[in-house]
Amino acid sequence: MNEAQGAAMIEIRDVHKWFGDFHVLKNINLTVAKGERIVICGPSGSGKSTLIRCINRLEAHQQGNIIVDGIELTDNLKQIDAIRSEVGMVFQDFNLFPHLTVLENLVLAPHLVRRMPRAEAEEIAMNYLGRVRIPDQANKYPGQLSGGQQQRVAIARSLCMSPKIMLFDEVTSALDPEMVKEVLDVMIGLADEGMTMLVVTHEMGFARTVANRVIFMDLGQIIEENEPRAFFEAPQHERTRNFLEQILSH
């Protein structure tokens, strides 16, 4: 276990992954310190989502090592369970459980996985619903909420497991423009509290103000990695420059 200041929360060493013949991740090396906020960007199909999905084993890597909070990801199911209960993940299309109310969505995992008394889990859930500013929606079903509200519920649902790391996979891509801000505000609040975050996003404004480091991926490789000011003002690689021009041009 690494308890030291600035200790690595996530260590990714020489990781390769293939989907059949397709080489999605090529020799990825990345160390994320506790409390660090990393934004990963890149064109679609560059492997950025696959990379963060490897961190909680929604995808298995075939070569190299991934160590999360001192636990290595292997085929050992106990270790996978241990890591999953420490790593929260928010998805592009929310993936709330439509047959459960908002409150039940939030209580499910703490009650069943952490074996927390229901009353206590509900108290924590209401607390997080307050933090994402929708405590009045607790007894509604996800289908009754707007996209932005659903995504905030999804964030609260992950937080209820008190994760040490949060993964965000293009969480604002499926939202109407006016709802993007309410979700980003919640994420900024989380960053201010010192949460270790890996964020796959195209929101460059968020990257500029919140990230400690921005990573650019293309064709399964990390092309460039820098602190945001240098990344946006003086990108080193041709491909990064092209990408930034395209997404910042409008």
């Binding site: 999953r84 209960s85 993940m89 649902r157 992950s158």
Partner: peptide, 8 residues
């Protein structure tokens, strides 16, 4: 996937 990510 969401359920797995929560450790169920």
């Amino acid at each position: 996937e969401a359920a797995r990510a929560m450790g169920l």
